[in-house]
Design a protein around this nucleic acid. Structure first.
Length: 118
DNA sequence: ATTCTTACA
DNA sequence: TGTAAGCA
């Protein structure tokens, strides 16, 4: 199911298609990119190329805007979302550490934490 | 024909 | 945000 995500992130749509798919003007689309709400890829000739996920994100942005959120609000929303996606790695590691020490305690073992190899 | 950047009666 | 100008 990772292959599907790959295709969803393939940037193959020119701005003209995005304009029709989202009912946004190219002016707005370029402005949102300037505000880092989206970061479409560029072709060798400097043309913006969007993915299906970009389309979803633009529709989402449009909803937030209609809901009264400001550009800054949306930037904050995506910033925190990006931060929480990089965090699970740490808690997974901490989880292993916690389980390991608890298991050691339950087993009645005593471990010298300063010893090499651990 | 399309898209890009820059600028503003 | 819209729109015009001059490029690519």
């Amino acid at each position: 199911m990772a292959e599907k995500e790959l295709r969803r992130n393939l940037a193959v749509l020119p701005i003209g298609t995005i304009r029709e798919l989202t009912d946004l003007t190219d002016r707005q689309i370029r402005y949102y990119e300037e505000q880092h709400l989206i970061m479409p890829q560029r072709t060798a000739s400097n043309r913006r190329m969007f993915s299906l996920n970009d389309v979803d994100r633009l529709l989402e942005i449009k909803d937030y805007l209609d809901a009264g959120d400001s550009i800054a609000d949306i930037q904050a929303i995506y910033s925190k979302k990006a931060a929480k996606q990089r965090e699970p790695d740490l808690s997974a590691h901490e989880m292993r550490q916690a389980l390991a020490s608890e298991f050691i305690n339950l087993a009645g073992f005593s471990v010298n934490k300063k010893r090499k190899g651990y």
